[in-house]
C-alpha cells in the first residue's frame, strides 16, 4: 500500500520525530520520496498526506511551491544548467544552448529515451566556480563545452550500462556518486570542489 521502500518508510518515521510537529518533515519527505521514485506520484502524495495527517491539497500546495519537486517524471539524469549572473558572465548560456542542441530537448523536457532531462536553473551556489552544471545532485563546475560533453558522454555510457560502477538507481534518482570524469573542472589548484564527487559515496 505504501509506494515507498521499507527503508524510506522507516526514515520517514524517524524524520517525523525530529520536530515539535510532524508536519515539519514534509519538505524533506517529498524530496526523499522523489529521490526514490523519480517523481512525486499520486500514490506518493497520498501516502505522505496520510503519514502526516494532512490533506492531499496541503501536500500539493507545498509541492507546487518548491522548484526541485516535480509531479512528472524526469530523465534518469536531470541536467541542470545555471545561467544566473556569475555563470552568465562565464558562458552559462552557451552551456545551456549546447545541452539543448546535443540532447535535442528544451527547458524542463525529457528526452524520448528517458536518459536525460534538461532544466535551466537558478543560482546553484557555485558562483566562484562558474559556470556550473548539476546532474541530479552532482556538481560539475568551471566547465568548458568540451568538459560538458565528456560529462554527458559518461552519463550516457552509464545509462547504457557501459559504466561498471553503475548502480540500481531508479529513473531520476541521484544514482551512485562514484567516479565521473571531472578532469580539469575546478581550476582552483586542489580542485576541492570538483573532486567532491568522489567523497560523497
Amino acid at each position: 500500500m505504501s509506494p515507498f521502500s521499507p527503508q524510506l518508510e522507516a526514515r520517514f518515521r524517524e524524520l517525523m520525530q525530529r520536530y515539535p510537529a510532524r508536519r515539519s518533515a514534509l519538505v524533506p519527505m517529498l524530496l526523499y520520496a522523489q529521490d526514490e521514485l523519480g517523481w512525486l506520484t499520486p500514490e506518493a502524495v497520498r501516502r505522505i498526506a496520510e503519514l502526516l495527517g494532512e490533506t492531499e491539497l496541503a501536500v500539493r500546495e507545498v509541492i507546487g511551491y518548491y522548484s526541485m519537486l516535480r509531479t512528472e517524471p524526469a530523465g534518469k539524469y536531470h541536467v541542470q544548467v545555471c545561467t544566473n549572473i556569475s555563470c552568465l558572465l562565464r558562458g552559462g548560456d552557451e552551456l545551456y544552448a549546447h545541452c539543448e542542441r546535443r540532447l535535442g530537448i528544451g527547458h524542463k523536457q525529457t528526452a524520448a529515451d528517458g536518459v536525460f532531462s534538461l532544466e535551466e536553473v537558478e543560482c546553484l551556489g557555485a558562483c566562484s566556480w562558474a559556470p556550473a552544471v548539476q546532474v541530479n545532485y552532482d556538481f560539475h563546475q568551471e566547465l568548458t563545452l568540451e568538459q560538458l560533453d565528456k560529462i554527458l558522454d559518461a552519463y550516457a555510457a552509464r545509462a547504457r550500462g557501459a559504466d561498471p560502477s553503475q548502480g540500481q538507481g531508479g529513473a531520476g534518482s541521484p544514482g551512485p556518486r562514484t567516479a565521473l570524469p571531472v578532469d580539469g573542472s575546478g581550476s582552483r589548484g586542489e580542485a576541492a570542489l570538483g573532486t567532491r564527487v568522489q567523497e560523497k559515496s
Binding site: S24, L26, V27, P28, E122, C123
Partner: peptide, 21 residues
C-alpha cells in the same frame, strides 16, 4: 533539514514556514 528549491526560503520567516512543512 533540507529545502527543495526556493530562494525565498532564505528569508528568515519564510524559512520558518518551510521548516514547518
Amino acid at each position: 533539514h533540507t529545502g527543495a528549491g526556493a530562494y525565498e526560503c532564505g528569508e528568515e520567516s519564510a524559512l520558518m514556514e518551510s521548516l514547518e512543512g
